[in-house]
């Protein structure tokens, strides 16, 4: 799985951090998404899928299974 984030589309709601804190963080200056790991371990895939599904800015794209 490859994870891509779009910081321009990010609304800073922090939902991805609650879903998958090992993969997503928020920038200290403005709360915008920071990607910690663009190729997360399979055990995190369900959480990353949830993050992408609920992101209000549709700022998370997943490539691959």
């Amino acid at each position: 799985m490859e994870v891509i984030v779009d910081q321009d589309a990010c609304a800073g709601s922090g939902q991805c951090v609650l879903s998958a804190p090992e993969v997503f963080d928020q920038r200290d200056t403005d709360g915008i998404v920071v990607l910690l790991n663009d190729n997360p371990d399979p055990r995190l895939h369900d959480d990353v899928h949830e993050a992408a599904r609920i992101c209000p800015g549709r700022a998370i794209t997943l490539i691959g299974p």
Binding site: G12, G14, L18, Q26, G31
Partner: peptide
């Protein structure tokens, strides 16, 4: 305008 405030409400804060 939103980004003036997003840091105040981010999860770690």
């Amino acid at each position: 305008n939103r980004r003036r405030l997003t840091a105040e409400f981010m999860v770690k804060r």
